[in-house]
């Protein structure tokens, strides 16, 4: 227990003194996971709406794929992104391996199915008659979509939180495609693993505390936004 106490003290010290290395790692964590969540939103919400509201052959099959993808193990995403990204892979000419961009792509692969799946479920919950009514009132397809989006904003915020929570906590994909390079691709989770294997438990505990605080802070902000949406 002594090392836990030491770790918490270390965390407070690192946070208060604004240790530049820790600050950089923390900001990169936010940047990578935030961007990946945004990309997943841009792809996931329209796709979710399409899967929920569209009528076409193979829809159920696609839904089952997305629902399976919601449980995508990060290391699987990491491995496949690696195979595509490294020098001799099909996308090797972009030189993305061991960059934050590669981590964003891998994390998007993890978060996109989560957000798509929850969005699809949310859109399916909307009463079908509402959609008919909106259409009957002469709304265009785009207008209909926007109105429905308003209807499902609460579960959509839950989708954002689930997606963000999924990627900020993963370590397998980030290690594989990012390489945990100091000052470039080291994020809170990969740094924690490294410090544990170096035997620096106090720093590892400090990093984990920072990660939890960060995850809580972001989720709290999103929850407040969500609940405000609930009142009006």
């Amino acid at each position: 227990m002594e090392s836990v106490w030491k770790g918490i003290q270390e965390a407070v010290r690192l946070l208060l003194t604004g240790d530049p290395e820790v600050l950089r790692i923390t900001l990169l964590t936010l940047k990578v996971s935030g961007t990946a969540t945004l990309i997943s939103l841009v792809m996931g919400i329209p796709l979710g709406a399409f899967l929920a509201l569209g009528r076409f052959p193979g829809r159920r099959f696609l839904m089952s794929l997305v629902n399976t993808g919601m449980g995508m193990p990060p290391v699987v995403a990491g491995l496949w992104v690696t195979l595509f990204m490294w020098r001799n892979g099909p996308l090797g000419f972009f030189h993305l391996m061991y960059t934050p961009a590669a981590m964003i792509i891998a994390q998007s692969v993890i978060a996109a199915p989560i957000i798509t799946g929850i969005s699809a479920a949310a859109f399916q919950q909307v009463n079908g008659r509402l959609r008919l009514q909106i259409l009957a009132l002469g709304a265009s397809k785009l207008q209909t979509g926007l109105l429905l989006l308003r209807e499902v904003r609460l579960p959509l915020m839950a989708a954002v939180m689930a997606g963000f929570g999924g990627v900020i906590s993963e370590v397998g994909a980030s290690t594989m495609v990012g390489g945990n390079v100091l000052g470039r691709t080291r994020v809170l989770t990969t740094a924690t693993v490294m410090e544990v294997s170096k035997g620096n438990y106090d720093i590892a505990i400090a990093l984990s505390v920072i990660l939890m605080v960060l995850a809580y802070g972001v989720t709290l902000t999103l929850t407040i936004l969500q609940q405000r949406g609930n009142r009006t």
Binding site: I39, F94, H95, L96, T99, A101, I104, I105
Partner: peptide, 16 residues
């Protein structure tokens, strides 16, 4: 998107 993401990557191709 890929091109934008790799904008930083390409410049470092020879330096890395």
């Amino acid at each position: 998107l890929m091109v934008m993401l790799s904008a930083s990557g390409c410049t470092r191709a020879n330096q890395e």
